[in-house]
Design a protein around this nucleic acid. Structure first.
Length: 430
RNA sequence: GGAGGUGUCGCCUAGUCCGGUUUAUGGCGCCCGCCUGCUAAGCGGGUUGAGGGUUCAUCCCCUCUCGCGGGUUCAAAUCCCGCCACCUCCGCCA
C-alpha cells in the first residue's frame, strides 16, 4: 500500500510511475474519487455520532417527559448513525480495494519498461574460456550425476516434475553453503533466524504475494495456511502490528528456510535440472529501517550479495530491474546474475528489493521517533537473497568443473566441507 | 481433539457480577519544568495509537481504539454470539 497523502498531494508522480511500469494510470483518478467520497462519508458519520453522544449524555439526568423526548430523539438518531456508519464502511472498502491493487511507486531511477528493459550496472569476475582449456563444459545435471550429488529422476518419481534429491556430497554442499551464509551474515550484524514456512493469509497478503503472484503460491485449504515462496514472508510479518523504536533500527535478520513455488506460467521453462524447482532452501536477508535510510540499506544488501558471489568465485553481473518487472511491493530491484556456461548467459542467483513502506503499511509496522520526529511513520522493509541453494549449486558445478568431471571448491567454502578442495566423480576417489 | 482460565493506554494494575456520574483508576518507567554545589530525593505537569476537520506548520476540535469481529441498547471495557492468542490439565503424537 502506498501513502494516501502522496496520492492526494502528487498524483502525477503516481501516474508517471504507473506508466513506467507499463500499466494504466487511470486507476489514479478512480482512487482520487474514492478517497474524496471516503473522507466525505467519514465526516458525515462523525457529525452524527458526535450529536448522538452529546444527547446520550443528557439522558441519565433527564426526568419524565423530557427523558421520553430525548429517548425518542436519540432512537431516531441511532438509525441514522447506523446508516452513516454503513455508508462509511462501504466507501472505505471501495478505497482500500483500489489501494490494495496499486503497486508501489517505482523509483525514478528504475528503468522504464518490462522484463527485457533492465540495465546492466556491473560485471564481476571473469568468464572461463572452455575452448581454450580444451574441453566442453558439462551441464550441472551431468556433473551432479557423476558426483552422485543430484538425483532428479527419483525426485520426479517421488514428488513429480521440478523436484530433486540432493545426495551424498550434494547434501553436504547444501549444508556447507547454508552454514557459511548464516555465519557470514551474522558477522555482518544480521540476527540469524529459522522462521516458519507455513503462514496465515495475513502474512502472505501483507507481503504482497496474493495479488498478481497468487497463482504461484501453495495454499493448504484444510487449515487456510500458505507455504511461503521465500522467508521474506515470515520475516516481514515478524514485526507486524508493532511499533518499533527508531533507535532499534536498522533491524537486520538472516533466515534459512525452505521455499515453495508452484511455478505457474513457467511451463517449459528451465525444465532440465534444478534451476527452477517447486521446492528449495534459501538463505535470505531482511532489513527493517526508515524510508529515509532504505536507499543506502538497499546498496548495502547488494554489496553483501556481491561479496558472497565473489567469495564463491562466480562470474556475475548486476542488473537494475525495469519498473514493469519489479513486482507489486518493490520500488527498485537489483539482481545478481551468474554466468551459466552451458546456457551461455547470465541467470538470476540473487535479488534484492527495496519495498519502502509498501509492506509495512499493510502489516502495520511503524516506527516511533524517526529523525527526531514525534509522529510515527511506517517502517521500510528490504529483502535480499544471500544464497538460493539449487541455483548456487548449478553455478558452482558448472563454473568450477574440471575436464574429468570433478569440481573445484573455492577456498572460503572449503572449511565447511571438511577441508575438501575438490569434489571427484563417484568411484574415482583419490 | 476435550475441559477450565486469562486477555485493559510501554510494564503492572482498578473497573466487568449490578450498562450511563470513566475525558478508562492508581503505581512504575519515560519526557518537560521547578528546586538543588553535582546526583538522588521532593514538588508540578505531560505520556496509547489510528483517522477526519483546520492550518504554511503548530495549536485546537471531532470520531474510533479496553485481544479481534459481529449483535442487543438511546447508550457497551461492562450484557450476548463467533473467532484469535496465551496459560493449566487430559488425550494423541515427532
Amino acid at each position: 500500500m502506498i501513502d494516501p497523502r502522496l496520492l492526494r498531494d502528487d498524483p502525477d508522480r503516481v501516474r508517471a510511475a504507473q506508466r513506467r511500469r507499463g500499466e494504466s494510470d487511470a486507476v489514479v483518478d478512480d482512487l482520487l474519487a474514492a478517497d474524496a467520497s471516503r473522507r466525505e462519508s467519514i465526516a458525515a458519520f462523525e457529525r452524527l455520532r458526535a450529536e448522538q453522544k452529546q444527547l446520550g449524555k443528557q439522558i441519565p439526568a433527564a426526568q419524565g417527559d423530557q427523558r421520553a423526548a430525548l429517548l425518542a430523539q436519540t432512537k431516531e438518531l441511532a438509525t441514522r448513525v447506523k446508516a452513516a456508519e454503513a455508508a462509511q464502511a462501504v466507501a472505505d472498502q471501495t478505497f482500500s480495494t483500489l489501494m490494495a491493487g496499486l503497486p508501489n511507486v517505482a523509483d525514478e531511477r528504475a528503468p522504464a519498461g518490462g522484463e527485457d528493459d533492465y540495465v546492466v550496472l556491473e560485471h564481476h569476475g571473469s568468464v572461463r574460456d572452455f575452448d581454450a582449456e580444451g574441453f566442453a563444459p558439462r551441464d550441472h545435471i551431468e556433473i551432479g550425476t557423476m558426483l552422485k550429488a543430484i538425483d532428479v529422476e527419483r525426485g520426479a518419481k517421488v514428488s513429480g516434475a521440478r523436484f530433486y534429491f540432493l545426495t551424498g556430497v550434494g547434501a553436504m554442499l547444501e549444508l556447507a553453503l547454508v552454514q557459511m551464509a548464516m555465519e557470514r551474515a551474522e558477522q555482518w550484524g544480521f540476527t540469524p533466524m529459522i522462521p516458519p514456512a507455513l503462514v496465515r493469509p495475513r502474512a502472505m497478503d501483507g507481503t504482497g504475494f496474493l495479488g498478481q503472484a497468487a497463482a504461484d503460491v501453495y495454499h493448504l485449504p484444510a487449515d487456510d495456511l500458505y507455504l511461503v515462496g521465500t522467508s521474506e514472508v515470515p520475516l516481514a510479518a515478524y514485526h507486524s502490528d508493532e511499533l518499533l523504536d527508531a533507535s532499534s533500527l536498522p533491524r537486520r535478520y538472516v533466515a534459512s528456510s525452505p521455499c515453495f513455488r508452484r511455478e505457474a506460467g513457467s511451463y517449459g521453462k528451465d525444465t532440465r535440472g534444478i534451476f527452477r524447482v517447486h521446492w528449495f532452501d534459501k538463505v535470505e536477508m531482511f532489513t527493517y529501517t526508515t524510508v529515509a535510510d532504505s536507499y543506502a540499506e538497499h546498496e548495502r544488501l547488494l554489496s553483501y550479495e556481491r561479496e558472497w558471489l565473489t567469495a564463491l568465485e562466480l562470474p556475475f553481473r548486476v542488473i537494475d530491474v525495469a519498473a514493469g518487472d519489479l513486482g507489486a511491493s518493490a520500488v527498485r530491484k537489483f539482481d545478481c546474475e551468474a554466468w551459466i556456461p552451458t546456457q551461455g548467459r547470465y541467470r538470476e542467483l540473487t535479488s534484492t528489493s527495496n519495498c519502502t513502506q509498501f509492506q509495512a503499511r499493510r502489516l502495520e509496522i511503524r516506527v516511533r521517533g524517526a529523525g527526531g520526529a514525534t509522529a510515527t511513520e511506517p517502517a521500510a522493509t528490504l529483502n535480499g537473497t544471500l544464497c538460493a541453494i539449487p541455483r548456487t549449486i548449478v553455478a558452482l558445478l558448472e563454473n568450477h568443473q574440471l575436464a574429468d568431471g570433478s569440481v573445484r571448491i573455492p577456498l572460503p567454502l572449503q572449511p565447511y566441507l571438511q577441508g575438501r578442495d575438490v569434489l571427484k566423480p563417484a568411484g574415482t576417489d583419490e
